[in-house]
Design a binder for these strands. Structure first.
Lengths: 190, 190
DNA sequence: AAAATATGTTACCGGGTGGTTACAAATATA
DNA sequence: TATATTTGTAACCACCCGGTAACATATTTT
């Protein structure tokens, strides 16, 4: 029984991330994390201050939504940025299971513990929508479509199809991308 | 202690609906239903065959998505139908808490018990998207936007705002409607 | 009226949860 | 080396879950 606090903390934190990714927010619990980490749960309370402390640290670290930060250095986004995000950002969303579970989490609850967590997530997405002409229909249409993208991505975990649309085929997502891009163009031409 | 099975069954069923509407899918459980109904949970097993039997009966009864069936008598939907649905259907979605929780449920799990439940829900939404030209970008764009509508509706239960968008104001939803309608028009003119 | 059946309640089971306390062992400090 | 302190484990608590068995009471049938 070696004693190495940093290593133990990492085991706990990694277990937390792993469970969140695999089982989703519902699977995140003191016992589950302790078991996954192969460590006594008492240590989670000692080192992180319980589950809520673990969440807070997670929020501050900001390990989520990494690759959506392509526009991080810009103040506002242009129409071209929108198209870039539509292509790359959505693809990344489909691959980043962790981000998906965070987004799913926001649809389930929003208590004091998780509020901080979501604050960071949202501030990052926010930049995308900071297009100059705020009141145009394009902005709202874009928001709706991104929301739909999120919705279908989360839905694809349990539902292989949405009505007649096969959510497992890459081709489907390509059509969504195309529709998104075309919509942006149509609004822009107008 | 009067004995009235039909009345008891109704108490159980109503308790189930109430819990689903108020607490959401997370709150639905044998114990919670029994307590809410003010009845022994044993009776749920006897009369409904447990929670899964209760779900099945619920699905067959089809108490959800009532007012989205405006297009029920039509084979396929036209562009005008799309616009009508965009206006009325989405508004109804925001008001029908029960439907919202069903949709939220689909983002959480899809096991053998809930599969039948969702099957009915989806078959009803499906008609909306049965527009003639299936492969156009309009169809996918429309799907995305409806998905976004669902997403923001579910999100509004816990999050008052999405980034800078105030999900509590009626004005916001009006803008979403307008964006949806305009998108349909733009695709149609092309 | 007596027996059978339907209805309803109570108590229990095994298992899981979050949280705390008591204790053992390794490491650091004196 | 002897003493503190830190690190880690195990046992326990009260509470919830889904599920079942045992029992009591009302209603119907014979």
């Amino acid at each position: 029984m070696k004693k190495d606090r940093p290593a133990t903390e990492k085991k706990i934190y990694d277990a937390f991330l792993s469970i969140l990714k695999v089982k989703g927010p519902q699977g995140v619990g003191i016992n589950a994390i302790a078991k996954e980490a192969g460590v006594s749960k008492e240590l989670i309370y000692r080192y992180f201050g319980g589950l809520k402390g673990l969440l807070l640290q997670y929020a501050q670290k900001g390990d989520f939504f990494k690759s959506l930060l392509v526009l991080d250095d810009k103040e506002k986004s242009s129409v071209e940025d929108l198209k870039q995000f539509a292509k790359e950002g959505t693809k990344e969303l489909r691959e980043n299971k962790l981000t998906q579970e965070i987004l799913r989490w926001q649809l389930l609850e929003n208590n004091k513990e998780t509020k901080d967590l979501f604050k960071y997530t949202n501030s990052q997405i926010g930049k995308i929508f900071a297009i100059s002409d705020k009141d145009t229909s394009l902005n709202h249409a874009f928001q709706l479509m991104i929301g739909g993208y999120v919705y279908f991505t989360l839905l694809s975990k349990f539902n292989k199809t949405f009505i007649t649309t096969d959510l497992t085929k890459e081709e489907t997502w390509a059509k969504f991308d195309k529709a998104l891009e075309k919509t942006i163009d149509l609004f822009n031409e107008k």
